[in-house]
Amino acid sequence: MDGPMIEARNLEKRFTVRRHREGAFGAMRSLVDRGGNEVSAVKDVSFSINRGEMVGYIGPNGAGKSTTIKMLTGILVPSSGEATVAGFTPRESRKQLAQQIGVVFGQRTQLWWDLALADSLELLRHMYRVPEKRFRENLNRARELLVLDDFMHTPVRQLSLGQRMRGDLAAALLHDPKILYLDEPTIGLDIVAKARIREFLAALNRETHVTVLLTTHDLADIEQLCRRIIVIDRGQVVYDGELGALRNRFGGKRHVILDFDQDPGDAISTLAGNNLEIVDHNGPRVRVAFDRETTSTPRVLALASHHGTVRDVSIEEPAIEDVIRQMYEGPDSQHP
């Protein structure tokens, strides 16, 4: 297929929030009343994602991430704008599109609570008409990489969150989807479970070139999996590009930790002013922050050498959390 795998063109979604009515008459009136206030969950979102890309879709709570994904699956109809996904218009071809995509919503499950995981997967095999051989292959890969065997025959309601999520991932991939939407797939998981899921996704993307759109609050997910991120805030895209470039653009300061062989004393404070600031001074250890556009690490080292012998240096990139927070709050952001 030519062209991008996922394309969003000026997607907008407004919701009508109904007034709550009290009492019996309220219930009766709510039968016919359709009034209410409009809120824009997604205001204007455009992007284009190619086959095999793994893109992080991030933004604060309520920014419109899930709403965007729902529009890209066809379960929500945009108020305006258009989407093309795997060659389909989601709103018109929800069922055909369903055959091409896998979806995991971290807060929900597509498995059946009352069925054992194995039985749920079997039911999905029929649902997606996956040929027996293909089903075995995909199931075996998932069982191995996601380590499902311990709980294949446990009813889904008894699975831990991490086990359920692994089951859901296996379920989303049974029918070899071209696209995988992951909406907070690591939410609430412990570190081990998160790591296992990240490894699985990285391997999957390498081997099958599945296109992945990933929403998460854990930016470590993004750092380990995605080269490209799209940042959305209040329904609008505020950044679309490489993760590395984001650091440069929205800076955040780089921190250098200097370990002198002895305490450089108060004199070190004269360092400040050369486009850098001293964040912390504790005995021989001094933490310096500077803007990467105006100063470089060698220059900091050169300046520091006037104050003593630097025994060790370590550099800390700005935490991606800080970069993004700065983006929402900083002067560059697009809202007051």
Binding site: I75, R94, A98, V103, F105, Q107, R108, T109, Q110
Partner: peptide
């Protein structure tokens, strides 16, 4: 909201 996953099925 479980309807979300039901509607995602072909």
């Amino acid at each position: 909201g479980a309807i979300v996953t039901d509607m995602l099925k072909p």
